[in-house]
Design a protein around this nucleic acid. Sequence first.
DNA 1: AATGGCTGCCC
DNA 2: ATTCTGC
DNA 3: GCAGAATGGGCAGCCATT
Length: 681
Amino acid sequence: PPPKIYILYHSRVPYAALCKTFERVEAITKRIEILELTTNLFRTVIELTPDSLLETLYLCINRLCPDYEGLELGIGESLLLKAIAESTGRSMAQIKADYKDSGDLGTVAKVLAFLKDGIEYDFLNSRSAQKTLFAAKPLTVPQVFSTLKEIAQITGTSVGVLRWGFIRVYRSQAKKMGKIKGLLVACRENEAKYLIRSLEGKLRVGLAEKTVLSALAHAVVLTRPAQVEEELAKAVGIVSYWLFFPAIEFNEQPHSELPCYNLIVPALLKDSIDKLKEVCKMTPGIPLKPMLAHPTKQLSEILDRFEGHTFTCEYKYDGERAQIHRLEDGRMTVYSRNSENMSNKYPDIMEKLGSVGVWFFMWVKTGTTSFVIDCEAVAWDHEKKSILPFQVLSTRKRKDVKEEEITVQVCVFAFDCLYLNGESLLHKPFAMRRQLLHDSFQEIEGQFAFARFQDTSNIEDIQTFLETSIQENCEGLMVKMYDGDESSYEPSKRSRNWLKVKKDYLKGIGDSLDLVVIGAFYGRGKRTSVYGAYLLACYNPDREEYQTITKIGTGFSEQALQQHYGFFKDHVIDCPKRYYVFGEGTKPDVWLEPVQVWEVLAADLSISPKYQAAVGHVSVGRLLVDSAKGISLRFPRFIRIRDDKKPEEATSSEQVAEFYQRQANNEQSNGNGGVDDEFDY
DNA sequence: AATGGCTGCCC
DNA sequence: ATTCTGC
DNA sequence: GCAGAATGGGCAGCCATT
């Protein structure tokens, strides 16, 4: 149907219009209706106030700018709680209690009465509030957006010396808080709710980037600025998803190749649709959203998926995704998985890749000018010539890194080439991209390597290759479509053309532990009114203690969440048992009696600064483990209740220590395992 | 100058 | 990251 | 199968406090 116009003619989009859409979207779950509502919002904006389209869109996806510009609000839950408390004149305790009950900070801000000039205004009762409270002008989308941006730009503590020697301290947190409060008092009806959620960084209305992008495409097809195409509007009186399909397609390519709304939106408004594809082309220097892989539960899934196709297996390295760009003019950038600019973290990579010198030491072969390559940066032990764990990589400094001061060396494992010498390779088959990658770069030991691969279609070979990858400190395998149309590079897609196989996905392998539930955390959002996460412990029979090991918050079906809540609410205790061993920073919202054992799966064990499992038993060369550190789990998830086990029969501290030791031994001894044939493919 | 809490970003 | 769920 | 929303450990860096 034609847009329901609830925006009157304004020079700017009222923030209320946006919030109204959010409210409607939040109330429904049907995807097509959500799409329709969002499309109508954008159509209205295009028609009435096209200059606000970009800001409207950014507020819909809850971002301030393209990811690679790296501007962040720097506001979290604590600051918001404080801001809400101060704005409402209520105590933190009250705010926290409300938060617990509603599971939504937005609701907390919306429901509470605001105190202003000694008069209490009730936001729910808009009639009584209207007269006085609404003295402030209604918020507009550009205004809210620019204030959010200002908040993000506030930084640092500065000390200014005023006349007569008075010292004034500007605190960035206080300034941010001031801006938030300023917005809050101007909010009406539901605006505070969505404003707070924007500040939290999660809109949680069931509308996120993919749908917003699709809605944008629909809107610009149906509505051109200043010339509503009535006929077209009538034609879609019957809502059919497939009628819109061309619109989706036409916008998807531009966005996947040039994921920057600052560039796309003006082009959408100005240019014809045909021209858009020309304007929005892959551009070195602007990061692509990396292609992602589907998890695989069994090796047989690989054969099912790739039956009748050629595919190839690669090691899955446990490091940090690095999309490396080099432009013709020599400028270079390293981007992370989430398109953050990591160039300052990797001066060593920049130096090596950018350098001209003796060909023997260069990663880039002569003749290779511009490129975009997809890689994994992995911590590297130069003495042992082996891969170090992710936890080591994560200790690398991130800002203003000087090459001389680098403590954690990195080896870059390249596995794809998306752009080469002025030409996009996104639509080329993977076989060709890999060939070009190998033709254009060369391996330098301990610095740059190609991801190890094996082309095979035999399940036993895959099994063996998987085991070898794990021996060599990798996470497992990536299995990729090798040839044909389906092997192209699909930015931002979790494509079925790439599968990942990790040992912990496979049934019966991986670290499974039986742990005791000793605490719980209130759920939020769709987990309001049940516990959203739990605190788990292992058992130390010698000391008769339960030692905390991890929180857990995934793997539960909705039914399981209900069931657990129902069960544990009768086992809540006022304070922790004296035989609970826990760190100050890991206290749950409620403590529980030790009455149930859960089977839990994890990818790895880690040295923990917070948890206490096997404390005093942890020793490994590289990670300086002091006696106060315990063990925790990487990627913990709930598998099932172990009703057959009593709490005292849970995995013991000693076993936890053993698991860790085994893992560490593997990391230390097998680094070199069977790699003397490094160039043997 | 040291410490600890908060935040954002890796996985 | 992993996992679950409505469409 | 997609898109969205729940939730995990742990690191550096920033800021406020002491």
